[in-house]
Design a protein around this nucleic acid. Sequence first.
DNA 1: AAAGATTGAATTATCAATCTTG
DNA 2: CAAGATTGATAATTCAATCTTT
Lengths: 188, 188
Amino acid sequence: MPHLLIKDLPRYECLIEAAKHYPELDPSACEAFLHLLRAGDEAFLHAEQHLTAHNISHGRFSVLTLLMKGCPTDGSKAPGPGLTPAELADNARVTRATMTGLIDTLERDGFVRREADTHDRRMMRVCLTPKAREFLSQLLPSHFQRMAEVMSGLSEAERRTLVELLNKIYLRAAELNTPVRAVASPNT
Amino acid sequence: MPHLLIKDLPRYECLIEAAKHYPELDPSACEAFLHLLRAGDEAFLHAEQHLTAHNISHGRFSVLTLLMKGCPTDGSKAPGPGLTPAELADNARVTRATMTGLIDTLERDGFVRREADTHDRRMMRVCLTPKAREFLSQLLPSHFQRMAEVMSGLSEAERRTLVELLNKIYLRAAELNTPVRAVASPNT
DNA sequence: AAAGATTGAATTATCAATCTTG
DNA sequence: CAAGATTGATAATTCAATCTTT
């Protein structure tokens, strides 16, 4: 009879269990993978609850933080004119249709403004409103505070080790995922 | 001009950058937290693409794998009669309304069956169909194979270290999240 | 025709309300 | 009334189709 003060995540437990039935498939790798998802999930939940309490979904938060700094894909600094919906969609990793919907509700709530691009009339420019900047400057410190709580049990050395290992995983996964994402401009 | 063969995740880059402007808020913790989310995100994407290609969403996959083994919250083994929608919702961490919808489409697609509970007529029992068991036995090996690919760059020792660190984070986050999840039965 | 933005249908998710049963 | 399951309204997400502009 296990002590269930800390409830587990059965959907991961099931798979960690199932992976052991495939010894030819590198069980230690599967175990590490599922632990990554489980910890990421639980950590994300902690951050998300804070955002949800402020009526900010994952997608909305991505849009706001991307607009905070410009952050165009090519690294060029263009803070003034804002970003286009297409740039936001690429950087937030959602489809353009999703981004249209996110901008709709953010505009309705007074967090962003749409402006027609002066040079290319197909494009829109999305900008933060002062209300959004105010909102973010209130929210971000407590948001980072919550991140720090989750990581408080790790020493500086452990954090460095963790970041190093996570980076290795990230780069490998990004490499595996790259062909899928590179569907932007085929060569025909 | 950076070499963009591996596209970055600007929504995390922005925050990692922003966290450095709050030196009083434990920047190394925030950095580690965001690296966890970024790696988890990218790893999850790799697994998800495989599931999506087989018409299986995150929620659907959770339901199928939970039903594979029973997996009731209290650890009791009850493989025969299946699980109730409430148990599935708790274990998959979605609301009961969401679970109703997931079971609807899974039933429509022939993966699960609903049966009325013989003892308590408020409850339903959800079971896997043979079609679903066949489907899972085809899918799981390649699913685990993809997990292994992502982790292939880590040695056994690194995997052990990683799991240990992730466990520390998971337990801390679960502890922080527990009060939020324990809203099941208030005492009035 | 190609690119940017949007719209429409479908799925997954939430909460709040409702219906059935205990 | 409690509890389990569902339904209805809304949001976020996807894909496919459409509309405007280049």
